[in-house]
Design a protein around this nucleic acid. Structure first.
Lengths: 112, 112
DNA sequence: CCTAGACACTTAGTGCTGCTAGGCGTAGTA
DNA sequence: TACTACGCCTAGCAGCACTAAGTGTCTAGG
């Protein structure tokens, strides 16, 4: 996997897993790994700053809790975050289909 | 379109249009715009450095010519470039399908 | 008891890459 | 004459994912 491939798509991934219910950071990482079948195996230092950024932008809300002696910070999608998700989903689809359109192998022009 | 979305995928796009025949830089830009239905409307300063980098890596060969008083530099895919294209195609498919796998909306667990 | 590893969070700094912005030059057209 | 399309080039910028290092809890194994 290209080391730059995720650039510009990470927010979408994080918003997407949070759309199915609140999760704490570590669980977000886990979900991304599971759902992508180990393709997206992200470092904590990659994901946590994203969560902070999304919260700062108002797309997430966080809440501290303690489970089995370990403190957790759980994130919930806001209305704004949900809208952002919809928009980024659409953007992704445009991007992906454009990529595929370019990738289609065109035959050489038939010059008789 | 996200301004970072292309990161890590641009080489693939350029290699892909060149796989269908030699093109000069300006024509590469044009092809990308046409095939993507105006989604990829790249600046010259974006594409030319990519061509130079790919040539330096041995994936392309270039040749100068003059057409209607204007000098052109046409690029041809090398065998190495063709292999690179195949590999990057595969990488893209893994990436795209992983993205889509994460984007699938999972229903909330049914807790009665 | 002590160590290793999973769990859980944080953040300063780095590196890569696409993009901006500016430059050069020709040909056609209004 | 000036503007646009064609055609090329590159130094520097910006923004993002990632590295690396830190803190701390809990459990399992030797």
């Amino acid at each position: 996997m290209n080391r730059e491939a995720l650039k510009g798509h990470l927010d979408l991934l994080v918003l997407s897993v949070l759309a199915d219910g609140p999760l704490h950071g570590y669980a977000v990482i886990e979900q991304l790994r599971i759902r992508s079948l180990d393709v997206f195996d992200l470092a904590e230092g990659t994901v946590y700053p994203v969560l902070h950024r999304l919260e700062l932008a108002g797309h997430l809300t966080s809440e501290w809790s303690e489970v089995a002696g370990r403190r957790r910070r759980s994130y919930v999608l806001t209305r704004s975050g949900s809208a952002q998700l919809d928009q980024q989903r659409a953007t992704w689809q445009v991007f992906a289909s454009s990529m595929n359109a370019v990738l289609v192998r065109k035959p050489w022009p038939n010059t008789p």
